[in-house]
Every structure is written in structure tokens, then in C-alpha cells.
Amino acid sequence: MSGSTIIFYLLAAITLVSAVLAVTTRMIFRAAIYLLFSLIGIAGIYFWLNYEFIAAVQIVVYVGGIVVLIIFSIFLTQQAGEQLPKQKMGRQLFSALAAFCGLALVMLQLAQHEFTGTGNKAVEPTVANIGYQMLGVDDNGYALPFEVVSILLLAALIGCIVIALKSKPEKA
């Protein structure tokens, strides 16, 4: 087994084990931290694949953004040192079933899909290339989805501001 393979299995183990721990632990803050490790493990796999840009974006968005947001909401709503109550049996069964269905779907797709090797040269994942691909308007471009997503984000921003605005006191 080469070193590269060992590293892959290590990263995969970190990702999977912490993902399982994230849903089984009964301390909410620990769950957030395990989720963080799981996401970092995925970023590590991107690094292992030499997709540094995606790895960095994974860390910026998920670790620096989403997990911090989750942790903040835990800070503001929960008490330190408390355990969550045990879930009902029915709920546990249902979520296990849902997870299993998702897994089965993915595995089925993977098993049915025929992976054919391509003769095309891989596109260098440099920032410039990613930029051209993302904002290109030709066949491989993603300009339209990019703009649509940015409008969605803008709508979310405006929504936040509207919610956060103080309503003026009504004139008596």
C-alpha cells in the first residue's frame, strides 16, 4: 500500500467516523465539532485529489461559515454541560431508514453507472481557469446559474435586513 493510499484511508476514516459520531452524540456542541471534523476530512480529500481551490472553498464556506454559524446558534440557545434527551424509538428508526435509503440510492447509481475513461486532457484547476469556466457564456460556462444564485443571495440579504429592521413606533 502506498503512502497516498494510506492517507486516503485515513481521511476517509476521519470523515466517516466523525460523521457517525456527529449524529450519535448527545451533546449538541460536540455534534457540531464532529460535523466540523467530517467537513475538514472532506476538504482533506479534495487536497489529496490536488483540487486545492475546491478544498479551500470547502473550508471557507463550511468550516469558516456554516459551522461557526451553527456554533453561534448553539451558544445563544443552549446551556453548557447539558445532554440532549434521548430520542424516541420511532424517530430513531425513521432516521436510520432515511439514511439507509439515501445510501442505497447513491450506491445504486454508482453501481449502475459505467465509468468510461476519457481521452480529453484534464483542465488545470487554476483560479483563472475556474473563473473562465464559472463566468463563461459558451458551452461549458456557468454564467447563468452563477447569476441566478447571486440573485438568490441578494434576496436573502434583503430579507435579513427587512427582518432585522426595527419597526417604527406607531403614532398614537
Partner: peptide, 25 residues
């Protein structure tokens, strides 16, 4: 690496996690 500067911004955003973790724990 190709994305040195982005890498630094990304990794330094993990820094806050250790502080939050210490504060909560």
C-alpha cells in the same frame, strides 16, 4: 500551491473554532 493566499484565508478561519471550543468546554 496555486492558491496560497486563499489557502491562508481558509485555514485561518478555523482558528476561531479552537477559541469557541475552549470557551464552551
Amino acid at each position: 500551491m496555486n492558491i496560497g493566499v486563499l489557502y491562508i484565508t481558509a485555514i485561518s478561519s478555523i482558528m476561531v473554532i479552537s477559541i469557541l471550543m475552549a470557551g464552551w468546554a
